[in-house]
Write a protein that binds this DNA or RNA. Structure first.
Length: 919
RNA sequence: GCGGACAUGGCGUAAUUGGUAGCCGCGCUAGACUUAGGAUCUAGUGCCGUAAGGCGUGGGGGUUCGAGUCCCUUUGUCCGCACCA
């Protein structure tokens, strides 16, 4: 009986569906385990072989945990709002909802083919009102909250209003955009507009002016992580800086907790490091400098207050608010000119000539508060408006950027730390003795920094302060295909809807472009206003909104009373294993943690961190094939001979190439222009060249899982993807090699059917050797799954079959089938019921237990070839003490010769063998 | 520039975590069965050498009885951040 994978896989996928095999419910009698994949954005191209890598790994883990007795939640869904569907709609007029639904259907079919154990009754789709209602709900909660630094917690905004009425801003320690100061009376005297404005300064979801990444081609703003080197992540369009009023989320309020939380979760060090860098915490001092001739002070941030005696000038960002006041009439023209110049330079250009020094003198001066010296104030775009206070004290002797600036403008350079050669470059190191610094002289840098913190505070010049690189998340997009904000404008004041008015559904429109006035497409919607006629917000939420709390929704996907019920949340708690790509390190994985912590503060969820363990699967790249056309002809020369001709490489569809050998007929049929192609072969074959590239249609290197499954079956596909290499590693897809995995399954099948061609299982007792092989495999595979080392687990199965020969004993095959099930669910399910005769699904079986008794080595050998002098091989029974082994070694003739009368210093013994004898 | 990861046969990789380097698979070679095989099975396959033997984990150095593994140095590849004060 042949291994008919097509029939078997179809049969079981059907049965699983009918029986609802993978449906899970809360079950307090069993421990829970939550395994989640980062849900896909359903693109029009469908899945290629790279996408399922993580899904296969998580499915293996889910099934394994289930077989270990856990109640496993393993859901899947779709991140369905997003730019590509909208871009497609602009081009074709097709409503994004329509194309998205089509794509989801296609994805669902493809996923189904791979035999995943998803509870499909929990499937979610972020673009459906039943789902995004809760995204809007969370937004309302954020709008209605501020962050209290003392309590380290989000609190209702009403508390803050009460505090303002009592004491104004007196004694306030809360997260805010700008430090404001007013009394209770002033607060009470403000009108509604003013109060609303002030509150935006404190809300966790708030509106405010900010420099944004504006993408003209897409007609929308983008978050920092959506911009790559000045181009949009999606589409690769240029992005410029622009000041705009935008909805934002006060992620910065959580910076410290986001940082601290990293120590409590089981993520890779490299990923944690990326997040730490992204948050970019730095300790320093806020210092106020007097401005010569002005009443105001210049606030700066520095991590090196110890170098303040070396500050020979100040630099402010072009966008700094004091620019106008500082500029003296004689410098006005030059300053205006410079500002004009920097405005024109896009972010990209600024990055491109990061090394070019540019700047202009304002004419204004600051007074160094420690030595009273007057120092000039410059404007330069190397100081960023968005970081710190947008102003710095420049210490050219100990900061390379300040050094370059000082050299360029001929400014004085005063060393204040010993070391380095200032004629060549600045000395940036954080070590050495202080000089030229009055009371700091002789101190070590680290001591001096601490001393200065104290001095600055005691002299009332400023405070010790922590600064973050992390910015508040810009939360609005001038686009159609996203969640509408549950906000309307009453007399121009942003007003939230009530919770019972949710969801605010996305209205239908038929033209998806921005309006002529440059408003977002939603402005085209008819009656986009409340029943009273107040207009709704026309921008929509960004891509990360819907994916920030989706893991909570899976716990209780049909609840219409809340995002997740307390009961479901208390049972499922948080994701135990999260699988996905590293590309979400600074986007989704930050926002989700923020979102979860916010809900935690409000008491809606019980866990502070959403993803306990996270594994980043590598990316699967494409392996492109090339043919070599002899220039100006329709003749193609095989790879090995191409040097003899003048050729051009041409991408060829990898699906008509097998093991780098071109299928000539298929090639001629591929495209009309190749119908008459001629070939120069080597050894009768046309060998193609190859290269590793991104998997994409234009490279003709997309391998479709459907085709692989059609040819080899899902079980083979699953095993082969795992066998390809370590899960975390990126690697090119190469179909060649899949035969090995397929051969393994055929051999496995044959063990059950080898005699007569029908299933035939022997009830004979297994030999010790067979048991040893079985238990060795159980041990290895179990450990490998726990370590996410699926490639070595697959190897272990192959070794197991090599060792078993044609053993068809139940005592071996029954546990082996269970062990293999997570990897190859269809074939094992079939064999479990048909060949082994079990009545219940193998998915409800138990993982075989590993018994160390069967692993006992039966002999101790010491084949040693040491320095080419000592050679012997003896067998000793295992389990004897080391002293006995040593005695046996000393009694050996060859060893005696080698030792030549000397006593060995040490005999190095590891289980099963002697490694070395040291004289 | 800063931070991180990696480097092993023709290829993907493995190595009990400091203990016989190259497991498993692909590919290749030879053979068996077969009308045929892109099926199956057997044997071989790191490199040089007929062999004995020698050499081998990017290069150089070190620690150790012993290093793919640890340390220093160097080269190369990939990734993250990038004027972050």
């Amino acid at each position: 009986m042949e291994y008919n994978f097509r029939e078997i896989e179809k049969k079981w996928q059907q049965l699983w569906k009918e029986r609802g095999t993978y449906k899970v419910e809360i079950d307090p009698s069993r421990p829970k385990f939550y395994v989640l994949d980062m849900f896909p954005y359903p693109s029009g191209a469908g899945l290629h072989v790279g996408h399922p890598l993580g899904y296969i790994a998580s499915d293996i883990y889910s099934r394994y945990k289930r077989l270990c007795g856990f109640n496993v939640l393993h859901p899947m869904g779709y991140d369905a709002f997003g730019l590509p569907a909208e871009q497609y709609a602009i081009q074709t007029g097709q409503h994004p909802a329509v194309t998205t639904a089509q794509n989801i259907k296609r994805y669902g079919e493809q996923l189904q083919l791979m035999g995943f154990s998803y509870d499909t009754s929990r499937e979610i789709n972020t673009s459906q009102p039943e789902y995004y209602r809760w995204t809007q709900w969370a937004f309302l909660k954020m709008f209605d909250s501020y962050y209290c630094n003392d309590k380290q917690q989000a609190r209702p905004i009403s508390e803050l209003i009460a505090a303002f009425e009592q004491n104004g801003t007196q004694g306030l320690n809360v997260a805010c955009t700008n430090e404001l100061s007013f009394t209770a009376d002033q607060w009470k005297a403000m009108d509604e507009h003013k109060k609303a404005d002030i509150l935006h300064n404190y809300r966790i979801a708030f509106q405010g002016d900010t420099m944004v990444n504006w993408c003209e081609a897409l007609g929308t703003v983008l978050a920092n992580d959506e911009v790559i080197n000045g181009f949009s992540e999606r589409g690769g369009h240029p992005v410029v800086q622009k000041k705009m009023k935008q909805w934002q989320l006060r992620v910065t309020a959580y910076a410290d907790r986001l940082l601290a939380g990293l120590d409590t979760i089981d993520w890779s060090d490299s990923l944690k490091e990326i997040q730490r860098n992204w948050i970019g915490r730095s300790e320093g001092a806020q210092v106020f400098f007097d401005i010569d001739g002005l009443d105001e002070k210049m606030e700066i941030f520095t991590t090196r207050p110890d170098t303040i005696f070396g500050a020979t000038f100040m630099v402010i960002a072009p966008e700094h608010e004091l620019v106008d006041k500082l500029t003296t009439p004689e410098n006005a023209a030059a300053v205006a000119d410079y500002l004009e110049q920097t405005k024109k330079r896009s972010e990209r250009e600024r990055i491109a000539d990061a090394k070019r020094v540019s700047g202009v003198f304002t004419g204004g001066h600051c007074i160094n508060p420690f030595n009273g010296r007057k120092i000039p104030i410059f404007i330069s775009d190397y100081v960023l408006a968005g970081y710190g206070t947008g102003a710095i004290m420049a210490v050219p002797a100990h900061d390379s950027r300040d050094y370059a600036f000082a050299k360029h403008f001929g400014l004085p350079i005063i060393p204040v730390v010993e070391g380095g050669d200032l004629s060549v470059e600045s000395y940036d190191a954080k070590e050495g003795k202080l000089i030229n610094s009055e009371f700091l002289n002789g101190l070590d840098v680290k001591e001096a920094i601490q001393k200065m913190f104290a001095e600055i505070e005691s002299r009332g010049l400023g405070k010790k302060r922590v600064n973050y690189r992390l910015r508040d998340a810009i939360f609005s997009r001038q686009r159609y295909w996203g969640e509408p904000f549950p906000i309307y404008y009453k007399d121009g004041i942003a007003t939230p809807l009530r919770e019972d008015q949710l969801p605010l559904e996305l209205p239908p429109i038929d033209d998806f472009r921005p309006t002529e006035k440059g408003e977002p497409p939603l402005a085209r919607a008819k009656n986009w206003c409340t029943p009273e006629g107040y207009p709704y917000e026309t921008s929509t939420m960004p891509g990360f909104a819907g994916s920030s709390a989706y893991y909570l929704r899976y716990m209780d996907p049909h609840n219409d009373k809340g995002l997740v019920s307390r009961k479901a949340d208390e049972y499922w708690r948080s994701v135990d294993l999260y699988l996905g790509g590293i590309e979400h390190a600074t986007g989704h994985l930050i926002y989700s943690r923020f979102w979860n912590k916010f809900l935690y503060d409000l008491g809606y969820v019980v866990e502070d961190e959403p993803f306990r363990k996270l594994v980043n699967q590598g990316m699967i790249q494409g392996r492109s094939n090339f043919v070599y056309r002899i220039s100006g002809t329709n003749k193609f020369v095989s790879f090995g001979l191409k040097e003899q001709y003048d050729t051009q490489p041409i991408h060829v569809d990898v699906n008509i190439v097998n093991n780098d050998i071109l299928d000539l007929d298929a090639f001629r049929a591929w495209r009309p222009e190749f119908a008459t192609a001629e070939f120069i072969l080597e050894d009768g074959k046309y060998v193609c060249g190859w290269a590793v590239e991104k998997m994409s249609k234009s490279m003709f290197n997309v391998v479709n899982p459907d085709q692989i499954i059609e040819k080899y079956g899902a079980d083979t596909f699953r095993m082969y993807e795992m066998f390809l290499g370590p899960l975390e590693q990126s690697k090119p897809w190469d179909t060649k090699g899949i035969d090995g995995a397929h051969k393994f399954l055929k051999r496995f099948w044959r063990l059950f059917t080898q005699r007569e061609g029908n299933f035939m299982i022997s009830d004979e007792k297994a030999t010790p050797a067979e048991l040893k092989t079985l238990h060795k495999t159980i041990k290895k595979v179990t450990e490998d799954i726990a370590n996410f080392s699926f490639n070595t687990a697959v190897s272990a199965f192959m070794i197991c079959l090599n060792e078993l020969g044609d053993c068809n004993k139940r005592e071996i095959l029954d546990p082996l089938t269970r062990l293999l099930h997570p990897f190859a669910p269809h074939i094992t399910e079939e064999l479990w019921t048909s060949a082994l005769g079990h009545e219940t699904s193998i998915f409800d079986a138990k993982m075989p237990a590993f018994d160390p008794d069967h692993l006992v080595e039966n002999s101790f050998e010491y084949p040693v070839s040491f320095n080419g002098k000592l050679r012997f091989k003896k067998e000793l029974p295992l389990g004897i003490p080391n002293s006995e082994i040593e005695k046996a070694v000393l009694a050996d003739d060859n060893a005696a010769k080698y030792l030549d009368g000397k006593t060995p210093k040490k005999i190095i013994i590891v289980p099963g063998k002697i490694i070395n004898i040291v004289i």
